[in-house]
Amino acid sequence: MTTLDKAQKGQVIKISSIDNPDIKTQAIRLGIGEGEVVTCREIIPAGPVVICKCKQEVAIGRQLARKIGIEPVALPLNKCASCMVADAKTPQRAQAVSHKI
């Protein structure tokens, strides 16, 4: 399993695990909890990772990012993938052209 600090800019990812119970709760509130699909928006060198869920951007400190497990998701890049949560579950969308991760 890879972690959020190793994500790449523009990559679409699924949050698979969050280590810290308080952060996990807060993440559910923000809509970036376990199981959510988000886009990695920006990676500040040695600094925080910015992920995007719909129009909302959330910055996550590097230390914290190391403790958040992720899985790559294949989705078209030109869309903010995280806005398609409902769609992402449908097989049609899942088969859409994947981009190289």
Partner: peptide, 9 residues
């Protein structure tokens, strides 16, 4: 405190 901030537009 671990940084997890919501970025307003």
């Amino acid at each position: 405190s671990p940084l997890m901030v919501d970025l307003p537009p």
